[in-house]
Structures are given as structure tokens and as C-alpha cells.
Design a protein around this nucleic acid. Structure first.
Lengths: 228, 228
DNA sequence: TCGATTGTCTAGCACTGCTAGAGTCGACGC
DNA sequence: GCGTCGACTCTAGCAGTGCTAGACAATCGA
């Protein structure tokens, strides 16, 4: 029955409309301005319609925007990474590993700067998205793996996954501290240089400082590089 | 008039009571549970009393907790840093620079792990605290400078302030991503090792990758090490 | 054309941060 | 000791939030 199909199409369309409207509203006025009433008004339906699409309410809508953001971020990181098709202005294919890392880092920071509200949905707001578990959505894994691809060639004797976690943390920290006005804007390029110069350098054999004196941060064996 | 003095003492005491109660409530149940009504009930006064102390309302109360947190963090970082009096178990005075960096980083992560709600007040929530401006509260500068003290000996030909910003960003990123369940808990110690091994290594002369191709992240001269 | 089902809307709940104005209580001058 | 006045606190309420029960209308199958 075609009528049923049309209904489902309309419904899917309205589903998209909610997500894109929420995202646009957040980018324009910040997430604190995204209320269910205002969102309902923008899509020209009443509030309960939102809940017929997103049983989890507002958090689930934010989560949908976040998921969209993870997919976009992963795509942009891949485009800047070592496996990039015919190369980009920033990173020739199979280019010098640190240039690749610089390109990926730049892509990450550019994404966050361009879509601050989406970045907030991904990292600052509470969403029902699952992490580091079996049902972690694919885009989340892919984003991590895109960074991993740029970091691994520089890992040396360090665990690539762990180094990737640290790089990711640095990028994320740069984003949030910059956004909060905690870092000097004019030094952004210098920070990127420092990041690549320091992180992107292979290990020499272990140094003298002692990390075993109870720091209280986990004590399991350091292995594995699987993240999400 | 002694009566007036007593009043002011009582008022100051109640001011403290509000801040400590808000902090305790946040640590126990999270900031989303800290409502003006619940807070007023806990201090056994009505809501308007809160506003007689904090004209800026809830945000200003969060800001007071944050400021307290910055003071504590700065003190703990200093205690772990190179200028530490007679030395600590983690860092002997004037010890090997990378051991000092490891001790400071550990102190930072330990603080965030021990006081997550305070850390949220400092970095995640909106507060009226000023940053990177002339009226930045002293504890904020001091925290940055404590990290700077541990990082500077390892700066090499990099700008110490910039390197400190990157280290801070890494620590902050590790805290937030760990808290959000985005990083593998069992690799915490390994991440610290990687951080110290990579960041805490002096620069050799500049490398081959090109950072000048439009990354859109500031283009001013890279100078100055003054932050807040 | 009629009944059933599906979908949407109105109205309202319990909560939030915040505040105007009423009321009380203590300090001070006489 | 007493009356007045001012400082202080409270009650009650506003406008907003996320969310939902139940009334209503439109659509579909017979």
C-alpha cells in the first residue's frame, strides 16, 4: 500500500527535520536556546511530536546531532589522513608522517571551530550515546581510528592506541580550553607546531623517571589499542 | 558597635556555608541536583537569602566553588612542582625535570579524579569567572604558572608558555575524556608515561612538515608566555 | 457511509531560576 | 522601658523548562 509508504517517508523526513533544525538552532543561538517548545515551533508541530520521534526526549535529539557530528568528523579526519585518496593540499598521500599528523590535527581543530554546537553535543552535553562498549556506534570508532592511522607511524615503541588516546586528549583539550577563552588565540598555530613536534617523535629507550610510585591511576598491564 | 561586627561575622559565615554546601551537594549528587531550592533547604534559609549573598544567582555560586577549586589545584600543583619545599614522595626538590613533570601531571589528574564536581565547576559549567584578562583571579594564574614551572626546563627552543598550554590541554583532555568514559581506564598509567616521554623532550631544530598552509588557526607571531 | 485506528494537539504537571512585596524582629533614640 | 524605624527574611508568585495524559480530528478499511 503506497499510502503507508508515503507516511513512512514523511515521517523519516520529519525526523531529519527535527535533527537539522535542532542543530541549526544550536549553532545559531547555543544549546541553551534549544528548548522543546522553540524546536516544536520551528518545525511547525507541537511538542509531543518530538517525543513520538525521540522517546528519550531532548537528550536523544542532542544525541542524534552528536552522532551526525561524529560521522562528519570521522570523514574529515579520514580525508586528511594517510589513506587519503589522491592526497589533499595539507597531506600528500603517504606523506611524511608528521605532516600527516599535522593535517589530521588541523582537521580536528577546524571541525570544532566550524561547528562548536555540534562539538558540544558530541563532548560536553549528556547524551545517551554509548562509548567504549560493544554497541558503540560505528562513527565513533571510525573517528578514533582515523587519528590512530596518523599516529601509529610515529608510535615507535609506544603503544599506538595509547598514544592516540593522548593525542586525542590534547586536541580535545585545546578545543575546550580555547573555546572557554583559557588559551591565547594568537598562539593557536604555535600550539599545533608544539603538538606535532613533541608527540610526533619516536621514543628512545625508557628514561629515568619513576612512574610506579602510587599515582592512583590504574595499574593494569599496558596493552591493547582498541578504543571507541 | 559590637552588634554590627557580629552581624558581619554571621554573614560571612553563612556565605561560606552556602559555598561549602553547594560543593558538598554537587560532589554527592552532581551539579544537576544543586537547585536553589534544595540548596536553600540545606542551609536552612529561604531562597532569597542566596541572592542576597550572590547577586549573580546560581552561576555566581558555582563560580565561588570554582575559584576555591582553582586555589586548591594551584596549591597541589605547586606542592608537586620543582619549587616544592623539602620535596615530596613524587618529586624531590630540583629533581629530574621529567620526574617533576610526571609528579605535576599526576597531581593534576588526581585532583580532577578526587573532586569531579569542583572540576566541572572550574571547566565545564558556565561561571562569571574572568579568564585571560586583567582581572583574572590570582589562583587561576598560579595554577598555570605551577605547570609552567614544571614544563619550562623541558621547553628547549620552544616557547615555554605555548608548551605549557599544550600540556595543560592534554591533561584537561585526559580528564574530560576519561570522565566521559571515552578512554580505557586501565591505560591511565600508560597515557601518563606517553605524555611525559613525548612532551617532556627538548626540541631538536625544526622539522620538515609545513605548518604554513592555511590551517585557519591564527597567524600572528608566536611570542609571549603570559597566560591565565 | 460507518466504525476503528492512527496521529496530533491542548492543557497541565512538576520542576527550574529568580524576585516583588509583605511581614517580623532587633537596634536605637528618647 | 518604650515606641519608632530600618534591616532582614519569608511567602507567594512569575515565566520558563522537559515531559505527558487525555481529548480531538483525520484517515483508512470494510
Amino acid at each position: 500500500m503506497a499510502a503507508q509508504d508515503r507516511k513512512e517517508r514523511d515521517r523519516a523526513e520529519r525526523h531529519r527535520l527535527i535533527v537539522t533544525t535542532a542543530r541549526a538552532l544550536a549553532e545559531a543561538e547555543g544549546w541553551e536556546a534549544v528548548t522543546t517548545r522553540k524546536l516544536a515551533e520551528r518545525i511547525e508541530y507541537s511538542q509531543p511530536v518530538l517525543y513520538s520521534h525521540f522517546r528519550g526526549g531532548k537528550d536523544e535529539i542532542v544525541g542524534a546531532v552528536a552522532l551526525e557530528g561524529f560521522a562528519e568528523l570521522a570523514a574529515e579526519l579520514r580525508a586528511a589522513g594517510p589513506a587519503a585518496g589522491r592526497g589533499t593540499p595539507q597531506a600528500p598521500p603517504g606523506g611524511e608522517p608528521r605532516a600527516v599528523l599535522a593535517a589530521v590535527a588541523t582537521a580536528y581543530l577546524a571541525f570544532a571551530a566550524r561547528s562548536p554546537a555540534v562539538y558540544d553535543a558530541m563532548f560536553r552535553l549528556d547524551t545517551p550515546l554509548a562509548f567504549a562498549s560493544d554497541d558503540t556506534p560505528a562513527p565513533l570508532r571510525e573517528g578514533f581510528e582515523a587519528i590512530l592511522g596518523a599516529v601509529a607511524p610515529l608510535a615507535g615503541d609506544a603503544d599506538p592506541g595509547t598514544l592516540t588516546e593522548v593525542v586525542w586528549a590534547t586536541l580535545h583539550g585545546l578545543v575546550t580550553l580555547t573555546r572557554a577563552g583559557r588559551l591565547l588565540p594568537e598562539q593557536a598555530a604555535a600550539r599545533l607546531t608544539v603538538l606535532v613536534d613533541r608527540i610526533g617523535r619516536e621514543n628512545r629507550p625508557h628514561s629515568g623517571w619513576d612512574n610506579s610510585a602510587g599515582n592512583g591511576f590504574g595499574n593494569g598491564p599496558d596493552n591493547g589499542s582498541d578504543n571507541g
